[in-house]
Structure formats: C-alpha cells, structure tokens
Design a protein around this nucleic acid. Structure first.
Lengths: 203, 203
DNA sequence: CACATGGTAGCACGACTGTGCTACTGTGCT
DNA sequence: AGCACAGTAGCACAGTCGTGCTACCATGTG
C-alpha cells in the first residue's frame, strides 16, 4: 500500500480553497487551476480527488451548508426557548466573519443555479433546512407560551424565514459599519420575536 | 453623416441580451461573444458601444434597477395608503416572470460584487432605494393611522426591508408551484402590514 | 456625385479554460 | 528487499476569453 491520504479531509481542504477564491475574486474565478494554486497543490492532485469541476463546485458548496448545519445542532440542548431561538437563528445571519463568508458563498450558489443544476438541489435542501429550523423554533416558542397560540404557524414560519434570509442578505450588501449593521440585525430579529408574544406579555 | 443609430436604445437592446444570457446560463456565461450572438450582432458592434466588458456588465445591471425604479414611480399617485404600500412593495417581489427575472439578475449582481467593484456601488444604490421605499411606505401608513404611532420606524423599516428582500429571494429558490409560492408571498407581506396596525383596528 | 464618418465585421494575440493522458515518486505491506 | 499502487506532477489539446487593431460598408451632407 502506498501513502494514504485522508480523503475526506483533503476534500474539505480543497473546498476551503474554493471558498477563499470565491470570496476574493468571485465565483467566476473558480477554475481547477486557481483552486489548486490556492490550496498549494498541483492540478493533477485536485483532479485526483475531484475528477470534474462540477464535482469540485458541488462538494464545496454543499460543505458550506453542512458546516452551518453542524453549528445549529450544537444549540438544541439549551434550556430557555427564546435563547435557543436566537442562538439558532443567529447561525443564519452574517454576525461574524465566518458566517458572513458563508452568506456570501450562499449567494454565489444561488446565482450559479441556472448554470448548474446540481447546485439547485443543494440550495433547495438548505432552504428546507432553514425553513425547518424556523418552524421548530416557532413551535417550541408557542408551546412554551412565548408565541400567541392562535398564530398561523405556517404563515409565521414563512415570515420568519424570509426575515432571516433578508437580514442575511442585507448584512452583505449594506456598506455601513460592520458593528452597527450587526447590532441592527440582532435587534430587528429580537423585536420580531417579541412581536409574536401573546398580548400583554412584555419582554 | 453616415447611418445614425439611437445609441441609448442600442445599449438597452444589448443589455437585455446580457440579461437573457445570465438567466439562461448564469453570469459566468456572459462574454462579449455570447452577448453579441444573443443580440444578433457582431462582436465589433457590441464593442463599439461598450468598449470593455466591465462597462457592458455595469450598464446592464444598472438598467435592471432603473427599470424597477420606473415601475415603482407609477404607483405613487394612488389614493389608499395601504394600496400604495402593497403596489410598491410588490414591485420588489418575483410575482411575475419579469420581476422574477429581475430578482435573479439582482442576485447575480450581488454574487459578482467581490469580483467587480463597480457592481458594489450599483447594488448599494438599489439597496438604499428599496430601503427608502420601505421607509416612505411606513411613514405614509403611520400618518394615516394604519401603523401604530409609537412604532420605531427605523427598526420597522429595517424589518420590512429585510422581509421584502427575503421573500424575493425565496421566490427564486423555492421549487414549489409558482402560483402557490406567489400567493404565499403576497399573504405574508399583507399579514406583516396588518401586524403593524394599531391594536383593536382589524383589517 | 463625392466623401467624411458612424457603424459593422472580423482577424490576431496571448492568456486562460476543462479535461484526457502519461510518467514519476514514495510509501507501506508482503 | 521488492513490489503494487495511491498520490503527484505536468504536458497536450481544443476551445474560449478580453482586447487591440485594421478593413470595409453604407449613408447623410456638401
């Protein structure tokens, strides 16, 4: 047996190089060569792991969502429902450099969907995942009396989901001071959750 | 004097070809050649009007927002504030093929921002434009008693803006039946505006 | 009818693309 | 010690890219 490389680890390493290229130069700059250079590998090595560019791109983009998914899972053990809600939803917002990069990559995925059908499936899965998280959060909040019992949960899920994704998008576009944008993002989300409380039950 | 061509009209014609290429094959497929072919022109003709690819892209993307802006302006003469609000905000949602295409192009612009600084400025302008529209709408609704007078308008503007852009994004990603997605989008927005009404004032 | 000129056409260049393919290297088991 | 083979390296090909450039066409004015 020759030298054995941790296949999965190598793939993730290369995927992270893809991310860096996209963040620095845009998705159009992703090529087997630029990625290989970024990873400090030969083109042949990259192609050994990802035979085609399509596989390279799809794996890299799927990993973006996978990483976020893992982070969300770490919050499900928390006690206070409202605390869980904010912790989970904050994972979908560009509140630090890591999450900001993820959002940027996410937009790149959406933009490339027409060109690459595989990305459409990947993004659709992430979409349903975030939607599911919003739904769970609202369900839990309602069960613990932090959301009006008569609320239309389907509609509220759609509303919260749209709000979260919109806030995420604005974190990318808004030119303002990062910390100001960050604070406003958190406050808007908090106020939205407050607005769902039963009447008379202030914060 | 030789044959004279309406410069502005020609530029818009070419820009629309850029749009079609992006929608069909993604922004990566935009090249002077593909656009020229799409427009039924020679490469030389395109380059006569747009000397560089950067100018081609920037003009085409700026025109997307300009078209939307013109559509919004047509609603400002309406009487009922709530009617204005919905009409204006609906212009930012992918409720028909035209607006859906605009959203898709908008995402392409955002995704290409890191690669192309000019697009960042263009998108920032559109961002402030939509924000301004949200603000005006809320102001008008509050003045006519359709929004709680004690509402924090800054925060509510950010919330509405995020909601609208999030709903727009979902119109692109959601795989479901177009008419179902469309109806839900409209309903979520309507419910949101309802939720801002003064207490006791139902629809 | 001429002719100046806006518009069209397209060749040429060097750089870059994805992918097929072969040659080499070095390791870990027999 | 020796071998099989995963992993590395990189050449070659045909295609596309943006852009500089020249040659040509057609038309409105003098």
């Amino acid at each position: 047996m020759p030298k054995l490389i941790d296949h999965e680890h190598r793939k993730e390493e290369i995927a992270e190089s893809v991310w860096r290229v996209i963040l620095r130069e845009g998705v159009a700059a992703v090529s087997v060569r630029t990625v290989a250079a970024e990873a400090g590998l030969a083109v042949g090595s990259v192609r050994h792991v990802f035979p085609s560019k399509a596989e390279l791109l799809e794996f890299s983009m799927a990993l973006v969502h996978e990483r976020a998914r893992l982070r969300v899972q770490r919050h499900i053990g928390m006690h206070d429902p409202r605390e869980i809600a904010e912790a989970v939803l904050h994972e979908f917002l560009p509140l630090d450099d890591t999450r900001r990069a993820e959002m940027e990559l996410d937009v790149a995925i959406i933009a490339e969907m027409p060109a690459h059908q595989g990305l459409r499936t990947i993004r659709e899965k992430a979409h349903q995942g975030i939607r599911g998280a919003c739904h769970s959060v609202l369900l839990h909040l309602r069960d613990t009396g932090e959301v009006r019992p008569e609320a239309d949960l389907e509609l509220e899920t759609a509303r919260l989901h749209a709000l979260v994704d919109g806030l995420a998008l604005h974190g990318l576009v808004d030119e303002g001071d990062r910390t100001v944008v960050r604070d406003r993002t958190v406050r808007v989300l908090a106020e939205h959750l407050d607005s769902l409380r039963p009447p008379g039950q202030g914060r």
